[in-house]
Design a protein around this nucleic acid. Structure first.
Lengths: 244, 244
DNA sequence: AGATTTCATTTGTCAGACATTTAGCAGCAC
DNA sequence: GTGCTGCTAAATGTCTGACAAATGAAATCT
């Protein structure tokens, strides 16, 4: 009952773990101030640099924030979605880029979840969501758009679709799944023809959402999944050829 | 173009950011060894403790691992799902427990994603998944089971369902959504009657999955969502009453 | 009373040292 | 030559002590 994690870890990791447990279990509540570094050092019977390493670990996970000065110190951070987004995206990106996950699997997961959002989005979408989607469609029509900008706009489009579901947890999960695929998507060369195909499907999605026709949204998303998979295959082939 | 993050941050945060960018962008590849702490200190023109704080930040995100000894050092870590799970669960748990997300919203997100797994699971489920689910159902029937153990078994049951979809990214996302709700679920007092209801639905899910009837799985999951929401409401009421 | 100064507290950073771990090499015995 | 032993060097882990910078609050002056 004394130490939650296994023994032979680094001191700073152990201390970070103990404080993390205290936060997650609720023994330390939001905005509560932790003891000063010197006090923690004496409590855990270690030096201040060791305590600092532990605190930096927690700061990296956005569990605490620090403040300098007389009334400063380390405070339990109220985890915000923006903070969680960043970590989620970093993690997803790495899982993909390190080949731990294939493009196909990531693609399937992404569109599976996105389709799951369709019924909610069809029910709850507001005019602002339609406007955002239409704006991105318009941008995607500009012929002098770079491939990277096209990808970014594509992400924004799907982001609007997911946000229309009105559930921040879904938005958060999808952010990782969609933006994590960005690096690979950015390797795709979008021909005029492929842009045309994508644009047509985006248009269908927007229209279906306006009609609150979730079935049509799902259908268009499935078509888009199939097409994205095709485009992704080309990148995979090119990449493995270069590596081999 | 020189520094990706804003200027007035801590040195250790800036250094961690630069190394993180190098990893995410692929300039540092998996299992590559970073320069020693002393070399990094001289490269960034800071002291070794500062470098160490930066490295601990990265270690907290499982981006690097360190090894002591002659050929030791910091190595770019191949991010594994197990590592990602832990962080995902911690993050989800905190988002919920800090009231940043309501139980209803989390519940909706969870079951929405879980239903999305149903078609894949119905198609790909193997005997081992059915066996795991049946084992958990059996455990849940034991009348002397504590509420916490019942919850844990419930999580394991749904975990098996999601794993049956055969997509590790979905498993990863759902792990956060489901296990993040555990602390709140653990506050529920499961009466004999509520256990009976849940067990019946679990049985329906397992049977439907065996028949590869995704429609029936989705139906049972929706019923379970509705019932979970009811149980959750009681907890919310109790909690706000205690706080107010 | 209000403005200014001083001060104590706390985090941020640095320098240097020692402990510990670990791989590789040299040397010795067989 | 082979195999074991011990040494050595390199690297991380930890400690001590110190100073810099920020910041709020108390003390002081006008």
């Amino acid at each position: 009952m004394k130490k939650s994690t296994e023994n032979p870890a680094d001191l700073s990791a152990r201390i970070a773990g103990e404080i993390r447990d205290a936060i997650v279990s609720g023994r330390l509540i939001v905005d509560e101030r932790l003891p000063s570094e010197a006090e923690l050092a004496s409590q855990f019977d270690v030096s201040r640099p060791t305590v600092r390493e532990a605190l930096k670990r927690l700061a990296a996970q956005s569990l605490i924030r620090t403040q300098r000065g007389a009334t400063g110190g380390a405070f339990v951070n109220r985890l915000r979605f923006e903070d969680a987004y960043g970590q989620q995206i970093t993690t997803s990106t790495l899982l993909l880029s390190m080949n731990e996950v294939s493009f196909d699997v990531a693609c399937e997961a992404r569109f599976t979840m996105e389709r799951a959002c369709a019924p909610l989005a069809a029910e709850r979408r507001g005019p602002e969501h339609l406007a955002r989607m239409r704006a991105e469609i318009e941008r995607q029509q500009q012929p002098d758009l770079s491939d990277e900008a096209f990808c970014a706009s594509d992400v924004a489009f799907h982001r609007a679709l997911v946000d229309a579901a009105g559930n921040p947890v879904l938005s958060y999960q999808l952010a990782g799944a969609v933006e994590g695929m960005l690096p690979l998507m950015n390797m795709i060369t979008f021909t005029a023809r492929s842009r045309e195909n994508i644009l047509r499907l985006h248009g269908e999605i927007a229209e279906a959402l306006e009609r609150r026709d979730s079935g049509a949204v799902i259908e268009a998303l499935s078509a888009l999944e199939h097409y994205t998979l095709q485009l992704g295959q080309q990148v995979i082939v090119a990449r493995t050829a270069r590596q081999g």
